[in-house]
């Protein structure tokens, strides 16, 4: 009751890019990805945590990441995701688009 639909983030689709970027540094399980995102953004990024999992499924379906059972640092069984070659290419494409977009927005806003 009283539940309101929430947007995950301000830029639709950017969650996929952030996940790819995170995984390009090292292989991680779901909760690890979230922790990394929040720590590296100084808790500025508000992510509805549950949305991570549909995003992971989407990336896997596209063949950009691969999940396999493994162990977390504190030895719990979890699905560890790693980025694929196709995923790295996609990350390059998305980063380029993102840079273009932010530059354009910055220009409009007159900060540059």
């Amino acid at each position: 009751m009283g539940r309101k639909p929430q947007k995950n983030d301000s830029l639709p689709g950017s969650l996929d890019m952030l996940i790819l970027r995170t995984l390009s540094r090292r292989d991680l399980h779901g909760y690890g990805i979230l922790q990394f995102l929040q720590q590296s953004s100084n808790n500025e990024l508000l992510i509805e945590e549950g949305s991570l999992y549909p995003a992971l499924q989407r990336l896997e379906l596209n063949g950009w990441i691969d999940g396999a059972w493994g162990l977390t640092p504190n030895n719990r069984r979890a699905r560890i995701y790693k980025i694929t070659a196709a995923g790295r290419k996609q990350l390059v494409v998305e980063t380029r688009q993102y840079t273009k977009l932010t530059l354009a927005i910055a220009r409009v806003m007159g900060t540059e």
Binding site: R3, Q6, E48, E49, G50, S51, Y53, P54, L56, Q57, R58, L61
Partner: peptide
């Protein structure tokens, strides 16, 4: 609370496929 509705999220994940 932070996770959101578990059932709905798993449904969303499922419907990706």
């Amino acid at each position: 609370r932070r996770f959101g509705i578990v059932a709905r999220k798993s449904e969303e994940a499922r419907e990706i496929w």
